[in-house]
Simulated scan of single mutants.
Amino acid sequence: MKKVFLVGAGPGDLELITVKGLKVIQQSDVILYDRLINEQLLEEAPAHAELIYCGKSPDNHSLTQETINGLLCKFALQEKTVTRLKGGDPFIFGRGGEEAGELARRRIPFEIVPGVTSGVAAPAYAGIPVTHRDYSSSVAFISGVSKLGSEGEAYWKHVVKCMDTLCIYMGVKKLPEICELLMRNGCHRETPVALVQSGTTEDQFTVTGTLEDIGQKAEGINNPSMIIVGEVVKLRDQLQWFEQMKPVETPAVNSVVG
């Protein structure tokens, strides 16, 4: 039986795929890929490879998670090398744990190939280090689509108390509610906030403000966007680089596209 690879494609910049991730793509018989990957990576697949779109947007899932799990198992049992290509990192809000769990249950060999997650990359490309010895010694990656409302008060109180920097995925539509929850549970209204839309890509756009005013400043910002909350956001004025200059071209690795 061949192996299934759960591969993180990175946050959008084509060259942020890992060397190992690229090699796996180049050896695949089947690739099931997500909406937020850089589709130029698919050009690295062998000519015979079958490419299956599995993208999920907030309002539309092309395939259910159960169907995706079934396809991974089906192709592996057909003695094919299968790659599940996921945006960012497969184990950070990517349902990689669910897919690996199904493969383990079916006793199908699998391997995890970590990727660069947008919770680190988007802030970095916006000039915001998620940790800094003068500003932040802890960081949390959290989802903006759960633990909202009165039932989540204890959760948000814990997050505010324990973490210096928050990187919030999938939170744009709930931004006003998230800001209100943070302020209500201990964050000062002047806490700096940044939204980075389409991070690491040529379309990257960043808006900064505070918990009190970011909702107004971020009107028009859409998914995919990363929300960063914390004092480290202040460093953007000094450290921003990507949006001010054309990135320096880097050498190709094993004929990576671009």
Rank of each mutant, 00 (worst) to 15 (best):
M1D: 14
E50H: 14
D213Q: 11
Q216E: 15
I52L: 08
I228C: 07
I108R: 12
E212Q: 12
P129C: 12
A218G: 08
E66Q: 13
A45F: 01
K86F: 00
P247N: 11
L14K: 11
I221N: 02
V30T: 05
G12Q: 03
Q27P: 04
I221S: 01
E79T: 07
H48P: 04
N38K: 08
E212M: 09
A100C: 10
V4C: 06
T250A: 14
L181Q: 12
V172T: 07
R95F: 06
N185H: 11
C73F: 07
I112Y: 09
I227V: 06
I17N: 04
T165W: 04
R84C: 06
V7L: 06
K174H: 11
A154E: 15
N223I: 00
Y169I: 02
G94I: 02
T201K: 12
G94N: 10
S225E: 02
Q26D: 04
D203R: 15
I221V: 08
A218S: 13
P129D: 12
N254V: 09
D237P: 06
S146V: 12
L148Y: 10
R84F: 01
R184G: 12
L51M: 12
P129N: 11
L77P: 01
A104D: 14
T200V: 12
I228N: 00
E243Y: 09
G115S: 04
V232Y: 00
R95A: 08
Q244I: 09
L63F: 07
G87F: 03
I178V: 04
Y125D: 13
D34R: 04
A126S: 07
E177P: 04
A121W: 05
E153H: 15
C179R: 01
V159W: 04
K2T: 14
V120W: 03
G21S: 03
M226V: 02
S136L: 12
I214C: 02
R84W: 05
A154G: 13
C73H: 10
A218L: 04
L71P: 11
I142V: 12
G209C: 05
F205S: 13
T165I: 03
G199L: 06
P109G: 10
F75C: 02
S136R: 09
K157F: 05
L103K: 07
S28P: 07
L85F: 07
L103A: 10
A194W: 05
V233P: 04
N223Q: 08
T206E: 10
C179Q: 04
E15C: 08
I31V: 13
P192R: 13
P46D: 13
P90N: 07
E43V: 06
K2H: 12
K234L: 01
I108P: 08
G209E: 10
K2I: 00
A218K: 03
T191K: 08
C73W: 00
G12Y: 00
T64R: 13
V160F: 04
K23H: 08
L77R: 15
